[in-house]
Amino acid sequence: MANADALFHVDGLSKQFGGVQALANVTMSVAPGELRAVIGPNGAGKSTFFNTITGLFPPTSGNVFFQGERITGQPPHALARIGIGRTFQITSIFRELTVRENLQVALTGRERRSWSIWPKARTMNMPRVRELLALVGLTDTGTRIAGTLSHGDQKRLELAIALAGQPRLLLLDEPTAGMAAQERLASIHLVGSLARELGLTVIFTEHDMAVVFAVATVITVLHQGAVLAEGIPAAVRAMPAVQQVYLGEAVAPVE
């Protein structure tokens, strides 16, 4: 391992689907406290990268390390238990349950109480539920059916579900997908401030450059399944190779 003090480290990760090389030898290290953006044009392998490191399917070769331990190919529930939380590009919540129950399920997972049949589930963990709702700005929505929330609020709920697990590492797949432009910035700033407040490390994919440059501390650029560039935002922005890949997209404007 190249980077002993990394919280999260990916080593030579490759993934093939049939004959298609979706990920080619990706290596990256994420230090504690980083807000790492993984960007790239459509088809660059962002989703595959995300799904491979979160145990949805195993890599063809390569390894994933978390806090120095090898976690390659471990099932999602095992990853959640050691402190990795995630959200999905297509918002993934319990649509038929109330907002409160959504968080109670997540807390049940966190506390490993999903097997217990004793306390009444509906009254469990209420103080913590209120805390989480306040954290993402959803106070007073607790008794609503989650599926009836607005799109943005569903995204916030999903974030709260991920936070309920008290992760050290938070993986957000397109956290602002489907939002209006102003809402996007507000939403990513919420993520940024929560990460600082709770001492989280965050890795997120994003295609809106304004969102990326608003909070990211380090950026990794994927292109055709491989790492094209990596560095602090100002440096990445200046790289000719990156500008070429994003030709025609608004990377260049400086604030």
Binding site: P76, H77, L97, R113
Partner: peptide, 22 residues
């Protein structure tokens, strides 16, 4: 119970249940 609530959660979204550590 918590078990029953978990069950109802995974009825609609088993993948999300996996990712809360269950």
């Amino acid at each position: 119970s918590p078990f029953g609530m978990t069950l109802q959660a995974l009825r609609g979204n088993p993948r999300r249940v996996e990712y809360v550590g269950i």
